[in-house]
Simulated assay, not measured.
Amino acid sequence: MIFEAQPDDIDELYELWRLLLDMQQTYHVVFRYRPGSEQALKAELLQRLKDKSTRVFVYQEGDTWVGMLLASLRPGSAGFRLSSKGYIGETVVREEFRGKGIGKELFEAARKWLSDQGADHLELQVSVHNPQGIHFWESLGFTPSTQHMVLPLQAPGNSKKTK
C-alpha cells in the first residue's frame, strides 16, 4: 500500500532514508554524512515532510516500510518551454523487495501528484556509480540531459582545501 508520510512518521521514514544514505556512502563524498549526525539528518528530513511543495510517498507491506520516494514541485523560469519542474528525490526500496514493481508504483504515485500540481516535466539525479538506479530510471523513460559535476573545496570536517 502507498501513502503519503506525515511528520509523525519521522522515525520509520528516517530508517528508510538511512538505507539510501548508507548505500550511497561509497559513491562520492557529496553523499557522506557526519558520524553522530542523526538529529541533524532527522531535522532535514522533517523539514522536507513539512514543506507544502513536497510529498514523501511510502510503500508499506504489513508492518514493514518497504520503500520511499520524495517528490517536490520546483518553479522554473517562465521563459523556458518547460517551466514547472517536478523533482524526484531520495528513492529507495529495501533490497529484499526489489524487482517487484514497488519502485515503479512509488514513481507513478509521485508522477500523478506532480502532474496534478502542474509540473510539465520531471527531473532527478542518480549517481553515476549506481548502474541499477540508472537502469531503473531509464526503464521509466528518463534520459540524460546534463552531467551533474561536483568539486569539493574543502575536505569534509576540515577547513583546508582538498587536493
Rank of each mutant, 00 (worst) to 15 (best):
M1V: 06
I2K: 04
I2L: 12
F3G: 09
F3A: 12
A5Y: 05
P7A: 10
D8E: 13
D8R: 12
D9C: 04
I10Q: 06
I10Y: 06
I10S: 03
Y14G: 01
E15N: 03
W17Y: 14
M23S: 10
M23Q: 07
T26E: 13
Y27E: 11
H28T: 00
V29I: 13
V30M: 12
V30P: 00
V30W: 00
F31V: 07
R32F: 07
R34H: 11
R34W: 07
P35H: 10
P35R: 12
G36D: 06
G36E: 08
S37P: 09
Q39P: 01
A40I: 11
A40Q: 12
A43W: 09
E44T: 13
L45K: 10
R48N: 12
L49F: 06
L49M: 15
D51S: 13
S53A: 15
T54H: 13
R55K: 15
V56G: 04
V56F: 11
V56E: 04
F57V: 09
Y59D: 02
Y59I: 02
Q60Y: 08
T64P: 07
T64R: 12
V66A: 14
V66S: 10
V66K: 03
G67L: 04
L69R: 10
L70H: 11
A71C: 12
A71T: 11
S72Y: 02
L73Y: 13
R74E: 14
G79T: 05
R81G: 03
S83M: 04
S84G: 12
K85M: 15
G86A: 04
G86K: 04
Y87T: 08
I88C: 02
I88Y: 05
G89F: 03
G89P: 09
E90V: 12
E95D: 13
E96K: 14
E96P: 14
R98C: 15
G99T: 12
K100R: 15
G101E: 01
I102C: 14
G103Q: 04
G103W: 08
G103R: 07
K104P: 02
E105A: 15
E105Y: 01
L106K: 09
F107A: 03
E108M: 08
A109D: 00
A109Y: 01
A110N: 01
A110Q: 03
R111Y: 09
K112W: 02
K112G: 05
W113D: 06
L114N: 04
S115H: 11
S115M: 01
D116C: 01
Q117K: 15
G118E: 06
G118L: 11
G118V: 09
G118M: 13
A119S: 13
L122M: 07
E123Q: 14
E123T: 08
L124N: 05
L124G: 05
Q125H: 15
Q125L: 14
V126F: 01
V126G: 05
V128Q: 01
V128P: 00
H129D: 11
N130Y: 05
P131W: 03
Q132M: 09
Q132C: 02
E138C: 13
T143I: 07
S145L: 08
T146P: 02
T146C: 03
H148G: 00
M149W: 01
L151W: 05
P152Y: 10
L153Q: 01
A155C: 04
P156R: 02
N158I: 09
N158E: 14
K161L: 02
K161M: 12
T162G: 06
